[in-house]
């Protein structure tokens, strides 16, 4: 019984401090620079990129300027976790369907097969708006480099057909200044529930 109260108290205490800190963390490596009034922290940001989406429209960092977005990596012929990830991403998409400040960016890791036409067909079959959810293709090396050095997610082409492509099921939450504010498991309902809540927290932070 004693332990019950103890753990309840601890739980309340932790819940309390979570409420106070209504701010998401900054993920990635930070740099510190000297300024006239001490040091400033420079957070990791998404590097410049240029891809094309399912409408052949160029998609760059500018597309997301002042917006927050959720990014992931997938490929259209994926036999394993992609349908699960897309089901989960659709939940997030529906939750923020009316918010012009929230966008989505899905990168194919099989750009040779997933050309604009294939991505167009895929997005149409999902029935999503191309202004809000961009499915992008482009130079394979550049896509893989973005995954590894900007979004910190693992992708790999082991070269044996659809089963050869390997990628993490991560969803990455990026803020209006290109900083990573959360990493989620896109194959897990509870993790994606948290993403839906975190987007709200981030919107509050941005809109004051």
């Amino acid at each position: 019984m004693k332990y019950f109260w103890l753990s309840l108290l601890t739980a309340v205490a932790f819940a309390g401090c979570q409420n106070k800190a209504e701010r998401l963390p900054f993920l990635g490596r930070h740099d510190y620079i000297e300024t006239e009034n001490g040091t400033d922290t420079v957070y990791h940001t998404i590097k410049p990129f240029a891809f094309v989406d399912q409408d052949s429209t160029p998609v760059t960092n500018q597309t997301f300027a002042g917006k927050i977005y959720v990014a992931d990596f997938f490929f259209t012929s994926c036999p394993t976790i992609c349908p699960v990830m897309k089901t989960q991403m659709l939940r997030v998409y529906e939750a923020y369907a009316d918010s012009s400040e929230v966008l989505f960016l899905s990168h194919t890791i099989d750009p040779e097969y997933d050309d604009v036409a294939r991505l167009h067909d895929y997005a149409a079959r999902l029935g999503v708006n191309s202004q809000k959810w961009h499915f992008v293709t482009g130079d394979k090396e550049k896509i893989y480099a973005m995954a590894q050095t900007s979004y910190y997610v693992g992708v790999r082409d082991a070269g044996t057909g659809p089963e050869g492509f390997q990628h993490s099921g991560a969803f990455i939450l990026i803020d209006d200044k290109g900083r990573i504010r959360g990493l989620y498991n896109g194959t897990e309902q509870t993790s994606v529930d948290k993403l839906i809540v975190d987007i709200k927290i981030l919107l509050n932070e941005i809109n004051g």
Partner: peptide, 15 residues
Amino acid sequence: QNCHQGNGQGLRGLI
């Protein structure tokens, strides 16, 4: 289940 879902509903126009 990954594709056709636990409830057998598939995934929109894809599955």
